[in-house]
Amino acid sequence: MRKRAVGLTVIYALAIIAVIVVNAPLAFIILTSFKPLAEIMQPNLKFSFTPTLENYRMLFSETFYFGKYISNSILVALLSTFIAALVSLPAAYGISRFGEMKRGVAFWILSIRMVPPVVFALPLFLLLRLFGLIDSIWGLTAVYLTSTVPLSVWILTTFMAEIPQSVEEAAMLDGASRGRILLSVILPLMGPGLVSVFILNFIFAWNEFFFALLMTQDRAVTFTVGMARFITGYSIYWGAIAAAATVSIVPMLIMTLLVQRYLVRGLTFGAVK
């Protein structure tokens, strides 16, 4: 019995050490955001400091446009999520109820997930330029649909497959059309599916940097691009960058807690449940 207790203490200790090491980079940047700039750039090890909100005050001052960047990020995330859900819900229904196209569509969608964004970057950039959509919310939304639509179709299909056919058969006997069944029978049952689609797409759009870097210049600049502009400049405002990073991290941590039940399914496109 003693031996078992010692073993348990050891594995709990290891687990706690793992949590600390894994989250050390995040803790580091969050702590840095409360440090005065002079102490961030001090070339020696010193762990005590006087916490300050100066970096946050600077981040949201008139000099930087972070309020604007944040609202751009949220707007693009909401639009690309909403449009994706709108077209994906019927698609998921079609794929899960009409077996013959499953394999073809499934393969196509999975392939799109695997393609590096850089492959779409050039043609989408040139096309957006042709239509005058560079540096616009709608242009960036269209670009994000390349990711949000495949993800949404896939996740909703796995949720849809769990709804038994018998639920629909009753409605079908009453003479309801397929479209009607989708709206009044299936939709009310898709709550968890739609929530996880919403959150996973939101996380994607909020964190996305590469496309936003290419497709925005001024009016439609998102949060990540705004952050990156701090470092490519001549002087690096580490305090404000750390504050921006913290602001970017916090909503993601909250969403993790909300969506962790469906994370695995979303992240592996249903390959693991």
Binding site: V22, I29, F209, T224
Partner: peptide
Amino acid sequence: VLLILPMMVAPLVYGIIFKL
């Protein structure tokens, strides 16, 4: 839950953390 937090954060934020 405590061990999956890193992958929810923007890769760019990890870039910033380690650049510093």
